[in-house]
Amino acid sequence: MSQALSRTERIAALMNGDPAALARAISDVERQRPAARSTLEAIQPHLGRARVIGVTGVPGAGKSTLISRYVTELRRAGRRVGVVAVDPSSPISGGAVLGDRIRMAEHATDPGVFVRSLASRGHAGGLSPTATHVVDLMDAAGWDRIIVETVGAGQGEVDIADAADVRIVVSAPGLGDDVQALKAGILEIADVLVVNKADLAGADQTAAQLASMLALRAEHARDVSICKTTATTGQGVAELAVIVETRLAAGDSRRGCAAQRARRMVATAAGNLLTRELRELEAPWLQEICERLQRGQSDLESAARAVLRSAKLVDE
């Protein structure tokens, strides 16, 4: 792709599946360049062909190896596979080591697999709004199965619920209390629960434990599939792929509601923006509100409401 390409030509190249155009469009989105906005607008009418599979799980469960094997299955079925791997940024330096490439070695020369690592850049290890744009770009570029992987801690797993059609939560035996930790959030979003490292003693026990946890949940309990895999050898991964495809074929998608998703994203983005602006703003009225709070003349809720009443934070 030469530099001389116009913006329109770049968008055309992107939609034609040119990987270099896709890579660059993703960078534009990440760097919030002006070009990103027009690209995202232009691709809107062409979205929705791809199916998105979210994968998260307990650290040490072998998630990356499992994804690598799963990609192999999807490739065997003739799918073009995009992978978005999100790793946390260092809160101190802003830098990051994006290491999930490590486990994808077997697809390293396959042009039918496009992997992009994203640093969470302050989004607590979860999905940044950028990640959903990246998914859209891959969708527009003709990648028909897109896997979104997030680290198994923090807020990120819940965000996956917004971005994915099917959500896989990976666990493994022998991780001690971590299986218990599944209860505290990510179990709720799972469509498929995978017990990886099924060759280890205790795999059946872990599966049974998960099943009984599910049974305690009143609704949706029957909807969740449990599946055992051994990612190191690939055992059970074909079955996992079938389960996911069956769910997709049955129209399983909570991503479908684009309006709701947009609403949630706008709310988050506006909130973030507001927080940033308020932290830096030097204004007498804001100072006054804070002083009243300090002196105990107002409570936090009233102070916040006062801020929203007074704030005209954005000019345009």
């Binding site: 330096s93 830098g95 080591v97 994006l98 490439r101 490590i102 690592s117 640093a119």
Partner: peptide, 12 residues
């Protein structure tokens, strides 16, 4: 490089 604020893609 990470500690200097860069995003490092690290491979095996």
């Amino acid at each position: 490089l990470r500690d200097a604020g860069m995003e490092v893609i690290y491979t095996s």
